[in-house]
């Protein structure tokens, strides 16, 4: 199998892209940890994240992260088989529920992050 197999077809490329999302997301979470640990040096030692470079990095990570969420939640909907009263829940409904949960979770977290900033 040639090692560049994933460049030969769009579908394969998108798959590799999906798998690759893990790397930028990991880097971003490591940064988050680093920021949190910065709190240990007290009010004077803490530098809030404001640099343009960081924003640019976050934009890139956000794109990967959204791609991960979209693909993962959609595929999770395909594989889950839930029976209620002996009837199969159609996977459309499951996917819809997944995306709904995504919206709710995002709203709650955004609320916490913004509300407690006052």
């Amino acid at each position: 199998m040639p090692l560049n197999w994933w460049t030969r077809q769009r579908h394969y490329f998108l798959y590799m892209l999906r798998e690759f999302t893990a790397l930028p997301m990991a880097l971003w979470l490591i940064w988050l940890l680093y920021e949190i640990s910065g709190l240990r040096s007290g009010a004077h030692g803490y530098t809030p994240p404001r640099s343009g470079l960081f924003v640019a990095f976050s934009v890139v990570v956000l794109l990967f992260s959204l791609y991960h969420s979209y693909t993962f939640l959609k595929l999770a909907g395909v594989i889950m088989r839930i029976k209620v009263l002996d009837r199969q829940i159609p996977s459309r409904v499951i996917v819809f529920t997944m995306f709904g949960a995504w919206a709710v979770a995002s709203a709650v977290i955004a609320f916490v992050l913004i509300w407690f900033a006052r």
Partner: peptide
Amino acid sequence: FVGECSVVCPKGVDPAKAIQQ
């Protein structure tokens, strides 16, 4: 879960789904 197996299946079988399930 590359999923290409299910794309090329001429009979509408979804083996990728079978594996994940």
